[in-house]
């Protein structure tokens, strides 16, 4: 295809991505360097029977005017990044000096909103992703052994948790694990503890969210692996059997290597999707025990205050996180490409 033709074919989608993905990134970076204007004070003389005093008063009109004229606010450089709601460098430094053990250091860290969110996001990402791959693989192997007629039906029901709206899916599970819901109630009965609540403790909330994550994404891994199983090299499998390989050895040395590229693919997609974990925290109303980076941004923008600069700062840090997460993949693709050329 000629450069010219390519240009015209690609122009609409390029424009869409330029205007609504690339420019917003610039906008986010810019906003993260500003804070909204402080309120304008005026000195007024206030006289009463005891005499006159000068008092500082908020000038609402002037504040309003200043904010309307310069909606971006006041330039502060990188100050947003280092304040308590973000990287909290000074708090960390004090904590480092005063903390007696790793435990107290961790506790202190956990009280800082950004670090709390980073810890949960990373735990969620790196526990859910491998679990999804393992569960998906097991379902794929089990379904593959089923009768041909049953497969369609099983795939139909398996797809449901995957296509359902994440917020809706988490609400459905949330209502079931409620102390008055079927699962919550049964758990209380099984554990013999009538006050057991999955929402009350941080640990249990995290487990609930991770279980939701696996429930939601396992069908995706299952479908991919199932498709991979349909293209298994039958000759290799048969010769492995003739050579006396056991069932487990065949899975270990033939099936898994064959599926390895698919595992990489699922892992890549899952890392990206789990890193942005957000809806389940809203659905499970879990923000008291678990917040993620995406949730922090949402929380800043939501509500009356609309802390746009704070949200922008967290966004930039999140984008940097995504870049770090993706860097091994990018480096690998870059090398592959160079080898090809």
């Amino acid at each position: 295809m000629k450069h010219r033709t390519f240009f015209w074919f690609f122009l609409p989608t390029a424009l869409a991505m330029l205007l609504f993905i690339f420019l917003p990134i610039i906008s986010v970076v810019t906003q993260s360097l500003f804070v909204s204007h402080e309120q304008v004070f005026v000195e007024v003389e206030n006289c009463d029977i005891f005499g006159c005093k000068n008092e500082m008063m908020i000038d609402a009109a002037a504040t309003e005017k200043l904010r309307a004229e310069q909606p971006l606010g006041r330039f502060v450089g990188l100050a947003n990044y280092f304040n308590r709601s973000h990287l909290a460098t000074s708090e960390i430094a004090t904590l480092w000096q005063t903390a007696e053990s790793w435990g107290t250091f961790y506790d202190g860290l956990f009280n800082l909103p950004l670090y709390r969110a980073i810890i949960f996001t990373l735990v969620f990402t790196f526990v859910t992703t491998p679990s999804v791959i393992i569960v998906g693989f097991m379902i794929a192997v089990a379904v593959n052994a089923l009768n041909q007629h049953l497969k369609g039906l099983v795939i139909f029901f398996s797809l449901l948790p995957f296509v359902v709206t994440p917020l809706v899916g988490s609400l459905i599970l949330f209502w079931m694990i409620d102390a008055r819901g079927i699962i919550g109630n049964s758990l209380q009965y099984l554990m013999g503890d009538p006050n057991l609540s999955l929402k009350a403790s941080t640990g249990l909330t995290w487990i609930t969210l991770i279980v939701y994550g696996v429930w939601h994404a396992a069908p995706f891994a299952f479908v991919i692996f199932y498709a991979g199983l349909q293209t298994l090299p039958q000759d290799t499998l048969e010769s492995a059997m003739i050579d006396g390989a056991s069932r487990w050895q065949r899975i270990r040395f033939v099936v898994i290597p064959h599926l390895m590229p698919l595992v990489t693919f699922v892992a890549l997609i899952q890392l990206m999707d789990n890193f942005r974990v957000f809806e389940p925290i809203v659905g499970f109303n879990a923000s008291a025990h678990a917040t993620s980076l995406s949730f922090l941004i949402y929380n800043d923008m939501d509500g009356e205050a609309r802390l746009l600069n704070s949200a922008a700062t967290t966004s930039v840090l999140t984008i940097i996180g995504v870049a770090i997460l993706l860097s091994p993949v990018l480096v690998r693709t870059w090398r592959d490409w160079n080898r090809k050329v």
């Binding site: 971006l72 942005r276 609309r306 995504v322 997460l325």
Partner: peptide, 18 residues
């Protein structure tokens, strides 16, 4: 496009609002 795909949509939303 892959890098754009990896970015959480909410980070972009904070760029749109203002």
């Amino acid at each position: 496009a892959l890098i754009f795909r990896a970015m959480p949509p909410i980070t972009l939303v904070s760029g749109y609002l203002l």
